[in-house]
Every structure is written in structure tokens, then in C-alpha cells.
């Protein structure tokens, strides 16, 4: 059973990151496992305002997670990279 579900769509921020930005929502079934997994997958992760916003940085993208619910992934080469990461995160 997966630890979360997600939906994803292309985002259009009022800034130019030169690459793709996507946004979406998580529906988390197991909060503890979800957090453990995200810290496993992204070693460089910081949090703002007691975890209200998690910021993860990788070579392929930056990810921002808001209140364990909404997320944005920026600096992506393509949507496939986002889907691979998210599928891995939620399984």
C-alpha cells in the first residue's frame, strides 16, 4: 500500500526558471513514513516556520512542500523527472 497519493499539473509562476515548474497536492496516508522517505530521498532539506514549508534541493529539481499538502517542483528538465521522484516517494 502506498504511503501517499498525489496529483500533478504544470505551474506558471510569475518568474522564469528557464525550466519546467509543476505543482500538485499530496493526500498522505502515513505521515511518519512519508517524512522518513522524503528525508531519505532528499538529503538537503530545510524547513521554514516549524515545518510549514519544507524545501528540498537536488541536482534535478527543487521541491517545496506546504503543510504536508501542496507542493511545487521547480527547475525540472521535464515532467518525467517529477513523476519518477513522486512515484518513488509515495510507494
Amino acid at each position: 500500500m502506498s504511503i501517499a497519493k498525489y496529483i500533478l499539473k504544470e505551474a506558471t509562476p510569475c518568474a522564469d526558471y528557464g525550466k519546467l515548474t509543476v505543482e500538485g497536492k499530496f493526500e498522505i496516508m502515513d505521515n511518519k513514513k512519508f517524512h522518513k522517505k522524503i528525508y531519505e530521498l532528499i538529503p538537503d532539506i530545510s524547513n521554514i516556520n516549524s515545518g510549514q514549508i519544507l524545501i528540498g534541493k537536488t541536482n534535478d529539481f527543487d521541491i517545496y512542500i506546504y503543510d504536508n499538502e501542496k507542493f511545487v517542483m521547480s527547475k525540472l528538465e521535464n515532467e518525467h523527472k517529477a513523476i519518477c521522484f513522486l512515484n518513488n516517494l509515495v510507494k
Binding site: 509562476p13 510569475c14 510549514q52 514549508i53
Partner: peptide, 27 residues
């Protein structure tokens, strides 16, 4: 070192403070 679009503006929004972040149509 904090992204204006994805961190500062959303955090302000959570506190009911409405601003605009990004390039403001003036790159």
C-alpha cells in the same frame, strides 16, 4: 537565499498577508 515565489509569498499568504512575488511582468 529564500525563494520569493515558493517560500516568502506562500508563508505570507498563510498569515493572510497578500503580496506579489516574481518578475511582476517587468523582466
Amino acid at each position: 537565499d529564500i525563494n520569493p515565489n515558493f517560500v516568502v509569498a506562500p508563508l505570507l499568504e498563510k498569515n493572510n498577508i497578500l503580496v506579489r512575488a516574481g518578475l511582476h511582468c517587468a523582466p
